[in-house]
């Protein structure tokens, strides 16, 4: 099973990552990222493979995966909006952005379109309050200050 998750090329990368740390276990967040990048998300099968690789119980891997917010446990949508809801973004009208997402685009926080095209989540301060209200697109690009128009543009970009 470990071979289906850690194909030879990925296994090689994993070993290079593990070599940087004092213990195998210490590399887990970076290893899970590697798995997520190559498989799209962290399945139960992937958790077991990581456990085997790091020589720790599968339950420990599961606990780590569920403790942190950046791991997907299901296939992720093509477009992912993480809209900040913390104080500065709220003061800058972040709720109006969420309102617009719901009214115009039918997207509610914590939900995804059935066709798997778009998902919306609210998140806590992303360290970009100078561009509030803001969001992170597809777990990488920071976009702000957000306006309803900018949201429309992003959703039309595809």
């Amino acid at each position: 099973m470990i071979e289906t998750v850690f194909k030879p090329e990925i296994k090689k990368q994993a070993e290079a990552i593990m070599a940087r740390y004092e213990t195998k276990r210490a590399s887990i967040l970076e290893i899970l990222r590697l798995v997520q990048e190559s498989c799209g998300y962290v399945s139960t099968e992937a958790e077991e493979a990581v456990a085997e690789l790091l020589e720790i119980p599968a339950i420990d891997v599961h606990e780590v995966v569920t403790f942190y917010t950046l791991f997907y446990r299901k296939p992720k949508c093509k477009t992912r909006l993480n809209v900040c809801r913390t104080l500065t973004c709220a003061l800058a009208g972040g709720d109006r952005i969420l309102d617009h997402l719901e009214k115009k685009h039918g997207l509610r926080p914590g939900e995804a379109r059935e066709d798997g095209s778009v998902s919306l989540q609210t998140v806590e301060c992303l360290g970009a309050c100078e561009i509030a209200p803001m969001m992170q697109l597809n777990d990488s690009e920071y976009i702000g200050p957000l306006t309803p128009e900018k949201i429309d543009q992003v959703l039309e970009r595809k």
Binding site: T23, R25, A26, L29, E30, R33, V64, Y68, L70, E124
Partner: peptide, 22 residues
């Protein structure tokens, strides 16, 4: 890289996280 948890900014939470735990 961390993986999204405010509490990992607290120095001992950070150490636990760096050791591969919650």
């Amino acid at each position: 890289r961390g993986a999204g948890a405010y509490i990992c900014g607290e120095e001992t939470g950070l150490l636990e996280s760096l050791e591969g735990k919650k």
